[in-house]
Amino acid sequence: MSCRENAARLLEAYVDGQLDLVTSLEMERHLSECEECSEAMKSRRALRSALGGASLYFEEPKHLEGRVRAELRKAAGPSKTARPSRWRWLAAAATLPSMAILAGALMVMSRTPSDSDRLNEEIVSSHVRSLMADHLTDVPSSDQHTVKPWFNGRLDFSPEVRDLAGDGYPLVGGRLDYLSRRSVAALVYRRRQHSINVFVWPEQNGRTVAPGETSVRGYNLVRWSRSGASYSAVSDLNLAELREFVRDLQR
């Protein structure tokens, strides 16, 4: 690989974890040989960690969701179909002069998704995306000793990786993913033609995910925690088999 031609641009993609496995390995080899590129990479890493370290995220003001909900309802207009009765008195309230009261009422009455709802939703979206974008694995391998080391240097923790081919759930590979504003490991298993994504991330502020089962948009999701790490398995597989898979994984 020649620095002048390719490396500069590839370096960005490498630091962003956006290279395919083959190119990524080639880049690693190149970096170990080329001082210039390895310096350039350090400078990029420094920038990334500076940006990641400062809390640069602008939090939305508390009232915004209520305001948007109220506008959405206004725009949706009166519906011909019967509304659920809990909305009926609100329709009457809409004639009140004070819109502030209405907005307030809407905020209280409408269900605010909890953090765990959001996380479930995010997990299912990640799962669906991995299937749609044809980007199930960054490191396609059924060998746990290939998949586990691949995460080194890509994550700030080392996930436990086990092949369950003997139990009928072969390991397909691993992938980097992103949940709740942090990088997580995604381990991919297969059961017949169903893909199972297992997301793993370490405890945050001493907290791990609350164990439980749920179903979101037709996907089953099982969450548990173990030795300071949070796990979420998600699949279109039926719940019974997904539970069995989780049991095997925990064994």
């Binding site: 995220y57 602008f58 939090e59 939305e60 003001p61 915004l64 969701e65 948007v68 909900r69 959405l72 409408s110 998704p113 709802d117 959001r118 939703e121 995010e122």
Partner: peptide
């Protein structure tokens, strides 16, 4: 259904 799908992304939208 719309709200369930998109209100959780309001934080990202605002940012």
């Amino acid at each position: 259904r719309f709200e369930r799908t998109f209100l959780p992304h309001m934080r990202a939208a605002y940012n």
